[in-house]
Design a binder for these strands. Structure first.
Lengths: 210, 210, 210, 210
DNA sequence: GATGAATGAGATTTCATTCAT
DNA sequence: GATGAATGAAATCTCATTCAT
């Protein structure tokens, strides 16, 4: 009933995604974002994706290997962009609190500007499956965050009561629930509008209370 | 391509779940907890559930209407228990901060003691779908929390910078991510162990900084 | 590349064909006869068959297991009819030569009256595959023939130079090629028209030359 | 559903097979004989053939046009050899019966020595398709046979009850079924061993009974 | 000539869901 | 309540064939 993880097994024989024509890849991933953000995973047919991207079903299978892998690979590419954007924005900010605020803001802003990614995360991704695929603690994103947090703890600016991972979970939790709440309440009142208040709350939570 | 939401359509003609023999219902819901916590939604076959509960497929369809409804109904019953337990534990605690701490602790403790519920939430539930079914902002649970938060704001103990819902999201986010992290890290170090530190952080975030 | 014989493996779990509603079975097998007789095996899609028989694809898979098995099973049913008819016609004929002549005639007549079966044998069946499925030396048919031949050898009417199987092959060969030739030449001049001349030739070949 | 006969359509633009390097052609046709004799037509992939012959897929398509045409072309080349061999062996035999016996024997001997051709005929060729491609009544082979038979009828040695084609079918049938039986029974007892007995039977059948 | 990639088609499997008994 | 069977849909895979380089 319970097939072995095909994603991994297949991964070994997959042609490198890099070999896929970038324009085609773009079309495929846009189709993924469009369709999976509107309908749940199991209500999406890969033919829709194929047609939406103007490629054959086989091309998708060839480069992505499975429906799940297609989705996760697309999400991954998006989060990569978030990570890059974060690094970019951190440049030239000196004050630690401001660096962290920026980090927080970039995350909220990203989901605000890329609601399809958020919708997919909410409508088509099982946390656990995604996590196993490596997406949940998305490496690049994770490292940016962890680096910033480590910096704060090293400075003694952040609380030492809990470890960095817990700090990260605390922040992630607030971000996650907040952007989700935005969707749930019909996408009025964009999350960045509350960014500062929320950040100040967060800051009180994690700053070293000295 | 896109099947109509059978859950809703079917819901209208469902015999009341209450008419289902309680012992049978118990067996069904235990099977749901067992199986959906081990395998993703779309990897679970309803026959497994039926066999696991020693009932016929038709019984499930008759009382629950669809796979999705079966799962959500079961989750609902569990969260009902959480809400009840919370009310129960709040009795006889006077100090506001302690009431809130208790609330927080009961939630962590619930997931720690009912890991199958947590696993299901992480492995078989799309936030969005669940939300639409009414589970995400689960009424009974929601009211307990909101009542406690409203109380705090009325007292001036909690910050007035954001509304109650936002406070709730903040807390929910921290709980959610923390219990998830526990699963992700292999279920060592139970979430209640950090309950107090985390709560103090939370408290600093949401208390009125006066 | 080279999958194991799925027919056999699957055979074990197949519900008995006898459990299939006879009317449905009839519709399926008529569709098989219609379509496989017009187009080669690999040009036939099972959906055509399903649609032609007004059943779902799954019903076909459930009872027959595979495309190949479906075809062979249908052919088998037809040859069963030939065997039955042969037994029927043999009744009440005393003279040995006449019995054999009848046998020969019934075979030619069968293909003449069931050209779809013949077409399928010529257009969609690989001798070897069919043989492995047990169809080539179709048991019931084979036994009728062999019994008649054994009878002739026992009487000393037939030649003892070769064994019964070889005699059978000799006769089969003549029948086969003759009905095939009829199709090839556009189905004019039905094979039974030459039945007697051919049979006399055959008889000279296999009768004991004493 | 029903693809157009690609063989014919393509045939028109095919470069002459004669332009294909003979060594390459030899390698291709050996691969065809090897592989199609082991596996059924639709279980053979052209890449296997290409790899087995150390040529590119395109070379095959360029010179042969389609999978079917490749197979039939290879068979044709083999039957050409049989026809040539037959002519060769007929030389210097005077007695008519001996000429015919030789013809019969050469055919049996050919399949005995070239079992791959026989296997292919049994495992990968639909009579009807092959016939349409011109292979079944393979011209060169056909003419040798027909010439010998015509000779016999002209002499009054052969029966005049049926026409030459029917005589030919009679003989073909016996040959075909006999070599097939050899394969079916596991390739013991080579068909030539029975050549004489069978031929005498055949002879009684077709000789003018005067 | 060769190589690589893309395509369309269809076989096969697994389910949720529905129906009839 | 249960049991058995049928259905529609879609995932996945394998290929012949075609195209572009």
């Amino acid at each position: 009933m319970n097939r072995p993880e095909p994603a991994h097994a297949a991964a070994l024989r997959l042609p490198d995604l890099a070999q896929l024509d970038p324009a085609t890849r773009e079309r495929i991933e846009q189709a993924v974002l469009d369709i999976f953000s509107q309908r749940e995973f199991h209500r999406v047919g890969l033919i829709e994706i194929a047609r939406g991207a103007n490629v054959s079903l086989q091309t998708i299978y060839k480069y992505y290997g499975s429906k799940e892998a297609l989705l996760f690979s697309t999400l991954d590419a998006q989060l990569q962009r978030l990570a890059a954007r974060m690094l970019d924005h951190l440049q030239g900010i000196e004050a630690y609190k401001e660096r962290l605020r920026k980090t927080f803001w970039v995350a909220l802003d990203f989901f605000e500007k890329n609601p399809r990614v958020l919708q997919i995360l909410m409508s088509s991704v099982y946390i656990n499956t995604w996590r196993r695929s490596g997406g949940y603690e998305h490496r690049p994103l994770f490292s940016v965050f962890i680096r910033v947090l480590a910096e704060g703890r090293a400075n003694g600016v952040l609380t030492a009561e809990v470890d960095e991972k817990t700090l990260l979970d605390f922040i992630y939790g607030v971000i996650q629930r907040n952007v989700q709440a935005w969707v749930v309440r019909g996408m009025k009142d964009p999350p960045t509008r509350q960014a500062n208040v929320l950040f100040e709350m967060l800051w009180r939570a994690i700053a070293n209370p000295v």
